[in-house]
Simulated scan of single mutants.
Amino acid sequence: MSRRRGLLSRPLTSALTAVALAATGTLALHAAPARAASCYGYVGLTFDDGPSGNTTALLNALGQNGLRATMFNEGRYAAAYPAQVRAEVAAGMWVGDHSYTHPHLTRLGQAQIDSEISRTQQAIAAAGGGTPRLFRPPYGETNATLKAVEAKYGLREIIWDVDSQDWNGASTDAIVAAAGRLTNGQIILMHDWPANTVAAVPRIAQQLASRGLCAGMISPQTGRAVAPA
């Protein structure tokens, strides 16, 4: 499952830019032109690697299309851009833990894994994102040592059923097509930073609505997408 999605080549956006974007962005959570009239099932939309200078655009797209999602934030970015974490919560999103520096956790010892998770829990809480109950391991890599640390912090490990490949330069059409494979309870992997992902959001919303599917929350009990509480 090892894969790279361009994080190391992506420079950190300045905190001033991120705050300015958060201040000028207009969230439209109540506008839902593509919402299904009836929800016959729920899917989990997830976005890894935020928050970033692209978060405001992503939140706007989600809000304008009546979608909620789980944002798996990296601790280092939550600490750098706390206003963006607060914006995620204000927009109705759920915030999960995605480690502090996005390492290959299965190559680390238990103490290092613990540090990656605990620092992220603290950074997200300090930024106003609450205490995460969901954890997405970088690269989808897991083992017994990692699972033991997750259990220590009461975290449910969340992988995915569908990989949008947006981290690998997938086109907007390809991202929309990937979302079209989702069925009730399933979860799709997307990312906070690709422009093509933001562009795909309106079409994903329309497609889900046409199939009677709604964007749901991921249950900490089952790890599946369910109706929002």
Rank of each mutant, 00 (worst) to 15 (best):
M1D: 13
M1N: 12
R3S: 10
R5F: 14
G6D: 10
G6Y: 11
L8R: 15
S14E: 08
A15L: 03
T17W: 14
A18N: 14
V19E: 12
V19S: 11
A20Q: 11
L21F: 13
A23R: 14
L27E: 07
H30G: 05
A34W: 12
A34C: 11
A36G: 01
A37R: 13
S38G: 02
S38L: 03
C39V: 02
C39Q: 02
C39Y: 01
Y40E: 02
G44E: 02
L45S: 06
L45V: 08
G50N: 07
P51R: 13
N54C: 02
T55I: 10
N60W: 06
A61Y: 04
A61W: 07
L62N: 08
N65M: 05
M71G: 02
F72T: 09
G75Q: 11
Y77K: 08
A80W: 02
A80I: 01
V85H: 05
V85I: 15
A90W: 06
G92H: 10
W94L: 12
W94Y: 11
G96D: 04
D97N: 15
H98F: 10
H102E: 07
P103L: 06
P103C: 09
H104Y: 10
L105M: 15
R107K: 15
R107I: 00
Q112L: 05
Q112C: 02
Q112R: 12
I113S: 03
D114T: 09
D114H: 13
E116G: 10
E116K: 07
I117H: 03
S118G: 01
S118T: 12
R119F: 03
R119S: 07
T120E: 11
A123T: 06
A123D: 11
A126E: 09
A127G: 05
A127K: 04
G128Y: 09
G130K: 08
T131S: 13
Y139V: 04
G140S: 08
G140K: 07
E141A: 11
T142S: 14
A144T: 15
L146I: 14
L146S: 04
L146V: 15
K147P: 00
K147V: 02
A151P: 04
A151S: 13
K152E: 14
K152R: 15
K152C: 05
K152V: 05
Y153S: 02
Y153P: 01
R156S: 07
R156P: 03
W160M: 10
D161L: 06
D163Y: 09
D163R: 08
D163N: 15
D163F: 10
D163M: 11
S164A: 14
D166T: 06
D166V: 05
A170Q: 09
A170H: 06
A174V: 04
V176M: 04
A179W: 01
A179P: 06
G180L: 01
R181L: 01
R181D: 00
L182P: 01
T183M: 02
T183H: 12
Q186D: 07
I188E: 01
D192N: 14
W193H: 11
A195I: 13
N196A: 15
T197H: 03
A199I: 04
A199R: 15
V201I: 15
R203H: 12
L208I: 00
R211H: 00
R211F: 00
G212N: 00
C214I: 00
C214W: 00
P220I: 02
P220G: 03
Q221G: 13
T222N: 04
G223W: 07
A225C: 07
P228L: 11
